[in-house]
Computed example of a mutant assay.
Amino acid sequence: MMDDALIDYVAQAICRYLQQRPASADTLEGVHAWWIEWPDLPEAPAVTLAALERLEQQGVVERRHIGNRELWRACTRH
C-alpha cells in the first residue's frame, strides 16, 4: 500500500506546477521527472500515477489520448 502523505505531497506539487503553467501537458514520465521537485531521489512513477488519478477523480486534471500516448493536463471540463 502506498503512503497517503507521499501521494498528497505529489498531488500538491502537480497542482502548484499547473497553477504556474496552466497550459502544460505531459506524459506520466514527464510529470514524474519535471513537475515534481523531489526532496531526495525520485519515488517510483506509481506514486505519481496514484496522485494523478486522485486529482483526476477530483476534477483537477484529465488524461487525453493522443496517438499512442497518454497526456495529463489541467482539467478543461467543468
Rank of each mutant, 00 (worst) to 15 (best):
A33M: 01
G30E: 04
A13G: 14
R73W: 07
Q20P: 00
R16L: 13
Q19I: 04
G59N: 07
E53T: 11
E37L: 14
Q57W: 00
Q57F: 00
G30Q: 03
Q57N: 07
W35M: 13
V10N: 04
M2N: 01
E62L: 05
R73G: 14
A5N: 13
D4F: 09
Q58M: 14
L41V: 14
V61H: 03
G67W: 01
R16Y: 09
V47I: 14
W35P: 07
T76N: 06
E43K: 06
I36S: 11
R73M: 15
L55W: 01
Q12P: 00
W35F: 08
C75G: 07
Y17Q: 11
D8P: 01
C15S: 13
G59Q: 08
E29Q: 15
C15E: 15
R21F: 09
W72G: 10
A11G: 07
C15P: 01
G67N: 11
G67P: 08
R77W: 12
A74N: 09
D4S: 14
A50Q: 00
G30T: 03
E70Y: 08
T48E: 08
A44I: 00
Q12V: 12
R54E: 09
W34Y: 03
L28K: 07
L28W: 06
V47F: 08
L18K: 07
V61D: 07
E62K: 10
A11D: 05
I66K: 05
W34M: 02
H78F: 12
V60S: 04
A51Q: 03
V61L: 04
R77A: 14
M2P: 15
Q19K: 10
I7Y: 02
R73C: 15
E29D: 15
R63P: 06
R21H: 13
R63N: 11
L18D: 05
A23F: 04
E43P: 00
H32E: 07
E56M: 10
R64E: 06
D8R: 08
G30L: 01
G30D: 02
L28N: 05
G67R: 04
A25L: 09
D4A: 15
Q57K: 10
H78E: 12
N68Y: 03
I14H: 03
L18S: 05
E62R: 13
R73Y: 07
G59Y: 03
D26I: 02
G67M: 03
A23W: 04
A13L: 02
V47L: 09
W34T: 02
